[in-house]
Design a protein around this nucleic acid. Structure first.
Lengths: 113, 113
DNA sequence: CGGCATCCTTCTGGATACTG
DNA sequence: CAGTATCCAGAAGGATGCCG
């Protein structure tokens, strides 16, 4: 690949990571992605270790970037559902790749010991 | 997908992100990935905004995770080259996907304005 | 050139309590 | 249930200088 092509691609990766930054964002997306529709407290469970404050903040950012939608159901008490937008679903390939890689990576780590 | 399958995949994504955490790690990998072989100061340029302290630290972590190798050439002054290991190259698919997504994402952002 | 050491500021994010 | 508010410790990370 020529020099210019490299830089364009590196920049593109950087652009992608701008949206997906943060310790938890990709895990959150994968939770919503795999369940298709997911509630706040469920995501809190799925993504082990995250605090409600952080989850709230990161969900808000994902919503602002139009990767997910937030739906409030008029129940008592309130229920809130999160789903990927059509745009958010364009991330599915990446999520699947990461998941596959994570599974292999775990084998490597265990094999190391 | 059943409940258990979801959790395994979400966990796997989390495992992958454990290695790829940090604001810069994926950009650094993509720089080395696209150039095949790359020097410290070059990566510093490729990844806009990173400080040498951070780059040094993150490279060390990537090396510890056996994703890259560090080679010191006996020149004056010293030259150091970084390359992906065979294992690191298993990330190429993900990098390419992120790059493609980043290019599309940029179009979306620009289209928004 | 490729770092490491130091200082210092900003940001991250946990714990806890509270609200509609 | 799904957050918000506050407090606060610790980590992240920039700037600068030094070194082989």
């Amino acid at each position: 690949m020529d020099n210019k092509g490299c830089h364009i691609k590196i920049k593109a990766v950087h652009d992608a990571m701008d949206v997906l930054n943060g310790k938890w964002k990709i895990s959150i997306i994968s939770s919503i992605c795999y369940y298709s529709i997911r509630r706040f407290s469920d995501i809190l469970q799925d993504v082990g270790g995250i605090s409600n404050k952080m989850l709230s903040k990161e969900l808000k950012e994902l919503e602002m970037n139009r990767l997910i939608t937030r739906t409030v159901l008029d129940t008592q008490p309130v229920t809130v559902q999160y789903q990927l937008t059509e745009y958010g679903r364009t991330l599915q390939t990446i999520i699947n790749n990461l998941s596959d890689w994570g599974i292999e990576h775990r084998k490597v780590i265990i094999g190391d010991r």
